[in-house]
């Protein structure tokens, strides 16, 4: 067990996996000499050489397309998409090619690749470098989707992604790279695909993932000060989606909210609340709340950017409402 950063855990996962599996290659913009736009691939070019750590021209569709072809022919590529916002450029290669090849070709051709990317707000990077687009990938059968929230998950979910037989979209959060936490290379928090109760509680359930886990935990702490015990569920993998853990929690608490940084309409929070409603209907005491991003592009000005996504304060207020407590000042 060591204390390290989310960024270093990701780098260690790539390095350990590449040392174990010689078919792994990295391909993306600035992944080699530069060390990755957020420093995740630093040092890997020196260790593994330019045939396995490939600096690509700014050609996102062909980067992902090359990863698809490499995966079809015995390599295990990790394509890096510098920002998830560039997904619009690559959705054909991802959604029509990587995701559908196994199915269209009757199971003959697997595409075991990982698309590493990062998303989210927090750096005043504005509308084209701050989005949370996981909903797009959730809406595409054939893809796997993982979004680590902790240092240990950053390492272990990436290691697990690198042995999956199907294409995995792996979305890091730009606001977490410098976060410190414990890393135990021998002990994952849970298996790939399993959701985890990060904080137990009997009164209400907060279902969340990625950086919003930390806002949710802070909100749960604030609620505890008012005698409300919130259970916080970290989904970790959104596809496969582990329904069982959040459903069991909500059946116990009868109150739930889904917290997501992505915009509310048509998003992950909508999907989760629909599923919880279907499977927990008889136990629900209150409507399931979606605490999600405002339905707007992300603005650049820091105050506006912060207000565009959920905060611990908003989550705590929503918790008070679910418990029918007075809220001193709503919607500050």
């Amino acid at each position: 067990m060591t204390e390290t950063t989310y960024r270093e855990a990701l780098r260690a996962a790539l390095e350990d996996a590449m040392a174990t599996d010689p078919t792994i290659l990295l391909i993306g913009e600035e992944v080699g000499l530069y060390g990755g736009a957020y420093g995740v691939t630093k040092g890997l070019l020196d260790r593994f050489g330019p045939e396995r750590v490939i600096d690509a021209p700014i050609s996102e569709p062909a980067i992902v397309g090359a990863a698809v072809g490499a995966a079809m022919t015995g390599s295990r590529p990790v394509a890096e998409l510098m920002y998830v916002d560039f997904a619009g450029l690559v959705m054909d290669q991802l959604g029509n090619q990587a995701a559908k090849s196994r199915y269209m070709f009757g199971g003959q051709i697997a595409v075991p690749m990982v698309l590493r990317t990062q998303g989210g707000t927090g750096r005043s990077a504005a509308a084209q470098h701050s989005q949370s687009l996981e909903g797009w990938f959730l809406h595409t059968p054939g893809l796997r989707l993982a979004m680590p929230a902790t240092v240990n998950d950053a390492y272990h979910l990436l290691r697990a992604a690198l042995v999956q037989p199907d294409p995995v979209v792996f979305i890091e959060h730009k606001g977490l790279y410098t976060m410190k936490g414990p890393l135990d290379r021998d002990r994952p928090d849970a298996d790939w695909g399993r959701a985890l109760v990060r904080r137990p509680g009997r009164d209400l359930t907060i279902v969340t993932y990625s950086r919003m886990l930390h806002e949710s935990l802070a909100a749960a702490e604030a609620l505890a000060g008012q005698g409300i015990e919130a259970e916080v569920v970290d989904l970790r993998c959104l596809n496969p989606l582990d329904e069982a853990v959040p459903v069991a929690s909500v059946r116990r608490t009868g109150r739930a909210m889904v917290v997501s940084e992505g915009v509310m309409t048509g998003g992950v929070a909508a999907e989760l609340s629909a599923r919880l409603q279907e499977l927990c209907f008889d136990q629900l005491e209150e409507p399931i709340l979606r605490i999600a991003g405002e339905d707007i592009p992300i603005p650049v000005s820091p105050d506006l950017e912060r207000a565009a996504i959920p905060s611990a304060g908003l989550i705590a207020e929503a918790g008070l409402h679910l418990m029918r407590r007075e809220v001193a000042e709503w919607a500050r």
């Binding site: 490939i54 090359a66 995966a71 051709i109």
Partner: peptide, 20 residues
């Protein structure tokens, strides 16, 4: 490695195969 109904969709796959 696959016939493709997206015009140009299968082209970059040969780059990846070439890398392998």
């Amino acid at each position: 490695l696959g016939a493709n109904a997206i015009v140009g969709g299968g082209i970059p796959h040969v780059v990846g195969a070439g890398l392998s």
